[in-house]
Each structure stands twice: as C-alpha cells, then as structure tokens.
Nucleic acid binder design. Sequence first.
DNA 1: TTGATATCATTTGCATACGAATGAATTTGA
DNA 2: TCAAATTCATTCGTATGCAAATGATATCAA
Lengths: 153, 153
Amino acid sequence: MSGEDNLLKLVEAEEADENDYRLQEQVGFILRKAHQRHVSIFAAHIADLTPPQFAALAKLHDVGETSQNQLGSLIAMDAATVKGVIDRLKARGLVELSKHEVDKRRLLVNLTAKGRDAIARLIPIARDITEETLAPLSAKEVATFMRLLAKLT
Amino acid sequence: MSGEDNLLKLVEAEEADENDYRLQEQVGFILRKAHQRHVSIFAAHIADLTPPQFAALAKLHDVGETSQNQLGSLIAMDAATVKGVIDRLKARGLVELSKHEVDKRRLLVNLTAKGRDAIARLIPIARDITEETLAPLSAKEVATFMRLLAKLT
DNA sequence: TTGATATCATTTGCATACGAATGAATTTGA
DNA sequence: TCAAATTCATTCGTATGCAAATGATATCAA
C-alpha cells in the first residue's frame, strides 16, 4: 500500500467520522426530548401550574419556611429563575414573603393556606405523572433507569 | 381494634403518603437536572452556540436543504421555537433562507459556507460533550442508559 | 476595628419552549 | 370545481433558564 493510499484512508476516516455524527443518538438531544415529553405529560395532568412552580410548592411543603435562594438551591434553580417562579406563585396567593428578622438580606418564603391545599391536592396527581412518564419501561427497567439517571446529576 | 382506630390509620396512611412525596426522586425533577447539567457541559465546550442552534446546524449538515418547519420536526422544535433559532443563525451568517419555488408557503433553509465550516469544526467537540456528559457511567451502563432513555421518547 | 470577601436578592439581556391566534397557500373531498 | 380542511409560517404572550452587573447586608481576617 502506498503512502498516498494511507493518506487517503486517513482523510476518508476523518470525513466518515464527521458524516457519521448522529444527532438523534446523542445523549443531550434525547435528554432534551425526554424532558419535553415529561413537561407535556405534566401539563396534561396539571394545567394551572408548571413543573418548576410545582417543585417550589412541593419543596416548601416538605421543608417549611426557607429563604428564596435556599429554596432555589433545593430545587436546582438559580437566583434569577427562582425569583420569577416565586413572584408568580405569590401573585396567585400560593406563597407569601416576609423579611428575615436577623439577616436583613434574606427573603423568607412560606406556603399560604391556599398553597398548602393546592400542593396536598396535587401530590397524588404528581405520582400519576411520574408513573405515566415511566410507563414505557418495565418495573425493573424503571429501577435501572432511575439509578443511572441519578448518577448523571 | 375499634372502627375509630381503623379510620385513624386510614387517615394517617393518606397523610403519610403525601408527606412521603420526595421531589428529588421524581423522574421529571431528575430529568430536568440532568438536562441542565448537559447544557452546562455543552456551554463549557462550545461557548458561541446553544445546543438547539447546534442541533439545527448538525441536522442541516446531515439532510441538506429543508423547510423551516420540516427542520423543526427533525430536531423536535415547534414552529415558533425553530423560527427564533433560525433567525439567530441567519443573523450570524451560518444559514441562508430562500423561498420554495413551487410551494410558496415554504421557507427553505440552507447552510452557508461559513455554517458548513462551523459544523465540521464543532462535530468532534460535540463528541467530547457527549462523552463528558456520560462520564459518570461505565461503558455498559451507558449502553443500558441510552437504550432506556430512548424508550422514554 | 475595618477593609476585603462573601452572601442574598434584584435587574437586565438573551435564548429556548410552547399555546393560541392569524394569514397565506395548498390539498382534499363531496 | 370549490368549499372545507390542512399545512407552513409568523406573531404574541407567558414562563423557564442563565450570565453578568449591581446594591445591600453580613462575615472574615489582618
């Protein structure tokens, strides 16, 4: 085999490599689609709340009063994002805000009675949403998938 | 055991059920976090393009000229979203638009020379991004995870 | 004590993401 | 054929999501 042949093969290999890139098989692309599907299932069951809004209420229900930023870190939202979510929940009377007595930087967030009612009503529905999202998998597959997905975060 | 006891147990069971809801273990919540992590890894490797923009270029590189909506369906974006993405790629000279000669409703999208150069340069980096995203998993786990993730879409 | 750091929150700007409404062009079907 | 339905694209409104800049407060350290 000549040197030219080797060079040609090398070039072809590189080009094949590039032509071979399959977007549909990349983890980021599928992750984005899986997330979209989940959001769509969520919306079909809970029309008046988004997943981030639900997450904020569920976490407040779980831990009680917290500061806005602390809540954000508990539900994986940066300060700018959590502010918008909390503002909208406040506008709807589901949470209420107050100032921290000691640390004047902190903005405390609490569920209102209406917020507590809402989250109590929605949690059983949220279970259905989880179930429907995972419906394409068998019970065993669900366990495997959740274990591996958790490793990716 | 009295009837009151049974009723009490039932009520407690329901409340325990609700108190037991663990947001951090729900597939939607973890999916959102996994997606966030991927986007962050992507941004660390490719600063001047978002994942959706990259997806549009990669798909155009793959299939060649298509209509805007067709491209959207290939990369899982609705019409409103894909318009914004393509507008920004056009503004940067990475794609060009033209009207379909026969079907005057259609807006055709093509890579420019600059767009082709960009995607050719970025595809190897995109492979690194996929690899880093999946780095917490072993090779075997990657195969399992990708198989199950694909079943969810 | 006080100056440097760090934390909490807000604001701005940009980029998805999608429902709903609209308009133009095409296709279908009675 | 022609009215109804469909498709393609655009626009508007709302909601994440994040980087960067800013201001107020709190903490740390020399």
